[in-house]
Write a protein that binds this DNA or RNA. Structure first.
Lengths: 403, 403
DNA sequence: GGAGTGTTTATAAAATATTTTAAAACTTCT
DNA sequence: AGAAGTTTTAAAATATTTTATAAACACTCC
């Protein structure tokens, strides 16, 4: 088998991973190769035990197509979803089902000490504990907040690795191929391949969290810009307020819209005597504080709704800019904030009505993500599979395709 | 010769058009085909008289490559650059040299009457007068302001064509393939293929004119969004002023930055007694008024410089947003405004310093276009050639490749 | 200032990849 | 039951790359 054919088969596997189940004709048109040619490759993959038949699909007026899917245990992906304090690690099979438990690692990203090595060691141990042989692991996908240069494998904000890159350090420790990217981009990737943005060509995925992240789907694929920094939505200069952002500048979108800002406004508002059902908010436990605010808003607490609406409206102003510049067909709200769902939707829509030229906004679909907390984890796995058909061969165990 | 080979040769021609002169090895790597294969196609193109040898290039350490270029008169492109009042029409050969004179047509775009048909008839007459047989014309490229849907061939702002599209109407009258796009996008295309953004993967081309246009180069090609509306920079909601924009909304970038606004500010400032060397500004002749302001600024008139600087700074704020969202490697200033050159540069840079996260802005190259008024015309020609390797065959005369 | 070494381009022949064509096998619709 | 549409398979034809070899040139070393 030549390199080229191997690559083609990997590309088929990639499509089968993302779409779960496809006919030979589907694969042929996705890969732009002729039917007989993909049929041949598919037959080989079945011979190798990688692909299995999975029944027949409905007829569309002719012979019913034989469907194919990946054998779920032919390969696995390690997914790592980090936030500032906690890292979730899991293993997914080729049907995106968890194998074993998702484990938590308490890792303070802003702690400059030894976090990277801690992570690497933990991952190596986790893989060993799982009992899955490394030859069957396609790679490790990592999502983290911060300024991530995905091509260099570096995070300029967290986990400094000295001279080494994050990617190469973990690759050395685990012996497996590693991919990293910014959390918002991975959420967008998950939506693109497995979620609301499937089949969309241009979509904006807004990640409402401690900052306001953005993942861009342009021309049907994830867009990362020149250095992988694209989507720094949180720090666009949109206000003429005097609030200093933690990026050092003033007037960033984040200074009026992030969950942190909402929490702080709530606390100072209550202290100033605003009437509300909310109680016991604390600066220290932002996570809890925010949950309380969300719950109150869901129950109709007027002040809580007002706080969220203000933030949402301002996010909407930012989204209006995106719409004018990029003319997307869909906006997906995602992240912690979006879990509260539709409270965000109306004020954002309101802002779009006020700030968008009607013709450019009229057909845009605005929705809340269904993937929830799974988004980043699925995105991390998707990141590995996204590269599966053009990964450097020496980085992949040879046994994967001959097992 | 099969369809596929014909397409491949057309793709070679396209590359030769844009790069002017290439070696066989260059073409092979641009098109991702093997050297012997492109050598064979190239030999055929030479046989057909389409391609000629054009000397040897310098050696890069080995045998000097034979260079090839298109025979300039093998084919021609009609370029049409429209603004609100005047339309410039010309014919370019395969070396981007004008054949005959550029002709002007006074055509008021906002006049709903019969402008489209007038244009179509004028173009047909122009082509006939040129003496070039239609079989040798690859197509007509048209750039115009407004909301252009390039795939549908419609302009929602100007030149309504009833049930018909602009493209199909002109195709019917002239019998030639027609492409249209928004003026700012064409300027960006010209910069990408023939100007400052050659070899760049991500660039923003800002078109400073009666509005502030934007052309986006993303992943090495022109980005148009879902409906071809991408780049509506002029109407992003960036200010909380009360000025009503001609789009009907308030706070658009255009309300503080367009050349029209600068002219109006200048007039009212002078009426209010501001000291300046500028004289005789008039609301009616904005074109002249703006020229006077530019000249004054170039000569150091303090008020003129101040007016332009304010506008430029605000454009810079908008560009800062683009930089955060799209992480480009280059910003090109273009259009009428940029003809005044470097007066704009400093305030824009100033705004970026204030509003951009340093790491994301530090390597961005900001420059003034060298193409000047030629940009849109070259872009219109480039638009035709951009589609040359995937145009529907029935839309092209058969003689082009067998002449 | 030539001989040797390494690099790049050019071309022909051989090998392989890929598509086209055609026919068979199903399914649905009428 | 027959017509029309769709998938599947096999054989033939074509497209494309690989391999091998030669030619042209730059650079270094003596």
């Amino acid at each position: 088998m030549t390199e080229k054919q191997r690559l083609y088969k990997q590309s088929l596997m990639k499509h089968l991973y993302f779409k779960r189940e496809l006919s030979c004709a589907d694969l042929s048109s996705y890969t732009d190769k002729s039917l007989p040619y993909t049929a041949k490759a598919l037959a080989e993959l079945m011979e190798e035990g990688v692909v299995v038949e999975s029944g027949h699909a409905h007829s569309t007026g002719g012979r019913r197509p034989q469907m194919y899917s990946l054998k779920p245990d032919i390969m696995f992906v390690v997914t790592v979803a980090m936030d500032q304090f906690i890292t979730h690690v899991g293993i997914l099979d080729m049907h995106n089902q968890y194998v074993g438990e998702v484990e938590k690692l308490e890792l303070d990203l802003s702690d400059q000490n030894d976090s990277l090595n801690q992570l690497a060691q933990f991952l190596d141990g986790f893989i060993t504990r799982s009992g899955i042989p490394k030859e069957k692991i396609a790679g490790i996908g990592i999502g983290m907040p911060g300024f991530v240069d995905a091509t260099k494998g570096i995070n300029y904000t967290f986990l400094q690795a000295g001279n080494d890159s994050i990617v190469s350090h973990i690759e050395k420790v685990t012996g497996l191929p590693v991919q990293i990217d910014n959390d918002s981009s991975l959420i967008a990737l998950a939506e693109l391949r497995l979620g609301a943005a499937r089949e969309k060509k241009n979509a904006m995925v807004v990640n409402i969290g401690w900052g306001i992240g953005l993942g861009l789907v342009l021309n049907g694929s994830l867009f990362r810009g020149t250095n992988g920094f694209a989507g720094e939505f949180s720090h666009i200069p949109l206000f003429t307020n005097d609030k200093i952002c933690n990026c050092g500048k003033m007037g960033c979108l984040e200074t009026e819209t992030s969950l942190l800002v909402i929490a702080e406004k709530a606390i100072s508002g209550l202290n100033a005597g605003r009437a509300s059902s909310m109680k016991n908010l604390s600066h220290n436990k932002v996570e809890d504080t925010f949950r309380v605010i969300m719950d109150a808003a869901n129950k109709g607490d007027k002040y809580a709704v007002e706080l969220i609406s203000q933030a949402a409206y301002n996010i909407g102003r930012g989204v209006a800019i995106l719409i004018h510049v990029l003319n997307p067909e869909q906006i997906v709200l995602s992240g912690r904030g979006a879990l509260a769902g539709k409270i965000w939707l109306a004020p954002i829509q309101q802002a779009l009505n006020e700030h968008c030229i009607p013709r450019i906004a009229e057909n845009i679909e605005i929705m809340v993500s269904q993937l929830g907390y799974e988004a980043e984890r699925l995105g991390a796995a998707a990141l590995v599979m996204e590269h599966f058909d053009n990964i450097r061969p020496q980085r992949r165990s040879h046994k994967l395709l001959t097992a």
